Simulated assay, not measured.
Amino acid sequence: MEKRGVSRRKDPKWQIKLAIVLLFISSLIFYYLYNSLAFNLAISWVFGLLVGFTLQRAKICFTATLRDPIFFGLTELARAVILSLLIATIGYSIIQYYQMLNGLSLSGRFVALGWHIPIGALIFGVGAAISGGCASGTLVRLGEGFQLQWVALIGFLLGSVHGAHDADWWYRLFSDYEVPHLHTLIGWGPSILLQVSMLVILYLLAYLWEKHKFDSF
């Protein structure tokens, strides 16, 4: 009797059935967005599903990239994030260089440097430490059934609404701050080389740190 109960709990058929139902519902939502609202919304819906699936399978959490090396000596997530930044650096550099050559405005979000960055980073770090994850990690764990993330999600929504309400005031407050772009300071080639070199060094240091922590046992 006990073996049958164990086998039922391990039986993945209910997950397959649930996946089929969710896939069908997602297809209906895509069909509705595509035909009734806007094509961009339909594409955003599909893109969001793909990103969510990728985050869940990869277990990407930006908080864990800093927490795991310190507490557990694991740097797999940290190296994955560094590698993604390395790829994004090269890709965006190509795109922005092409835009500059053609007289187009550079794509990307440029933020003014100032004291607000370390203060915001501190607030984010404290919140991520208390909730156990960043925004992506919170959503992934919420989907996996972790009940604590419901509390974190409520706080996340309230904070986002309040931030959106006060966003104009913050933008005006830092409107006089300089918004730098590294290529304007040292040129395209040196700036790309500098950033890629720093990321490669961080990747190697993360790898050596994990190797040191586990080889010491």
Rank of each mutant, 00 (worst) to 15 (best):
E2D: 05
K3E: 11
S7N: 12
R9Q: 10
P12M: 05
W14A: 04
L18F: 09
L23C: 05
I25Q: 09
I25W: 10
L33C: 10
L33A: 03
A42H: 13
S44C: 03
F47R: 00
G48E: 08
L49W: 11
T54D: 01
L55F: 12
Q56K: 13
I60N: 02
F62M: 14
T63F: 15
A64K: 10
T65S: 13
L66H: 02
D68L: 14
P69A: 03
I70D: 06
F71C: 09
G73T: 06
E76K: 08
E76V: 09
E76G: 13
L77A: 09
R79T: 10
I82G: 00
I82M: 11
S84D: 02
L85D: 02
L85I: 02
L86Y: 14
L86N: 13
A88V: 09
A88Y: 10
A88E: 10
G91P: 01
I95L: 14
I95E: 03
I95P: 06
Y97P: 02
L101T: 14
L101K: 11
G103D: 09
L106M: 09
L106Y: 05
L106S: 04
F110G: 08
V111L: 13
W115L: 12
H116W: 13
F124I: 01
G125I: 01
G125T: 07
V126Q: 02
V126C: 02
A128P: 01
A128M: 12
I130Y: 10
G133W: 00
C134Y: 02
V140C: 01
F146D: 14
Q147F: 10
W150L: 10
L153N: 04
G155Y: 00
G155T: 06
L157V: 14
H165A: 14
D166C: 10
Y171P: 08
Y171N: 13
L173N: 08
L173D: 10
F174K: 14
F174Y: 15
E178T: 11
H181T: 11
L185G: 05
G187I: 03
W188Y: 13
S191C: 12
I192G: 07
I192V: 15
L193P: 04
Q195P: 00
Q195C: 11
L199G: 00
L199R: 00
L202P: 00
L204K: 15
L208H: 14
L208N: 03
W209Q: 10
H212N: 05
D215G: 15
F217Y: 12
